[in-house]
Amino acid sequence: MSEEAPTSPPRSSPNILVTGTPGTGKTTTAEMVALAAGLEKVTVGDLVKERGLHDGYNEEYDTYWLDEDKVVDEMEPMMAGGGVCVDFHTCEFFPERWFDLVVVLRAETSRIFDRLEARGYKSNKVQENVECEIMQVVLDEARESYKPEVVMELHSNTVDDMESNVEKIVAFVEEFRARNQ
């Protein structure tokens, strides 16, 4: 007989992951969703820096070496009650039970290139992220890590796209809350 993971009481408000290649608009979208839907926003990259959830710094790519176990341990209590909108560029290491919706933002590679270059990313980092978007790495990770019914792919090329995406996600939050009162 196999042991089952402990179950927590049903959430009255969903947990949402907004993910995608850097430059697809994750942070802005997550901020807008959190504000419009009354969710707590967690930007994993900030959490990693602020709480030392890494194994050092990668000079070549100007980023931290993420310690996935530390991140999961740190976030577990935050996620238990629901009502959290998480923003991060990858998703496969998060427990499936955490999220009621996984939004994968996609953008044209020319837009990603321009956005990352404007942020001052090193050329090797820009190129790697553009290639990741071409190969739909984050979308494939989401599809492999979560049930198909919780993964939503949305295009994020323009301000209109972003506003439409926020409306769709907020509608999901409202429907979830109505079903789980």
Rank of each mutant, 00 (worst) to 15 (best):
V18T: 07
E131Y: 11
H54S: 00
S123L: 01
F88K: 05
M79K: 04
E60I: 09
Q181S: 15
E96P: 03
E163F: 15
L47I: 00
V86I: 10
V151H: 05
I16T: 11
N180Y: 15
G25T: 07
E92Y: 15
E153P: 08
D140I: 15
A37L: 08
V103Y: 07
E175A: 14
L105E: 02
T63Y: 08
M79N: 02
T43M: 12
R115E: 03
A30H: 12
E153H: 09
V72K: 04
M32T: 10
A178F: 13
A107I: 04
R106F: 12
T7E: 10
A34V: 10
P10Y: 13
T29D: 07
E74V: 10
K49P: 00
P6D: 07
P77S: 09
Y61L: 08
V166P: 01
F88R: 05
T63Q: 13
Q181L: 13
A118T: 03
D73A: 14
N58M: 02
E96N: 03
G20V: 07
M75K: 05
K122N: 00
M32K: 15
E149M: 05
M32A: 11
A178S: 14
V84H: 05
V44C: 02
C91R: 10
E68A: 07
E163P: 09
V138L: 12
E4I: 00
G83E: 03
E128G: 09
R106W: 12
S110P: 00
G120V: 05
R11E: 08
S145P: 07
M32C: 13
P9Y: 11
K26T: 12
M162K: 14
I16M: 07
A36T: 10
E40Q: 11
K147Y: 04
A34N: 10
V138C: 03
T21R: 13
S12K: 13
V33W: 06
G83C: 02
T158M: 08
V84W: 12
T28H: 14
R115I: 03
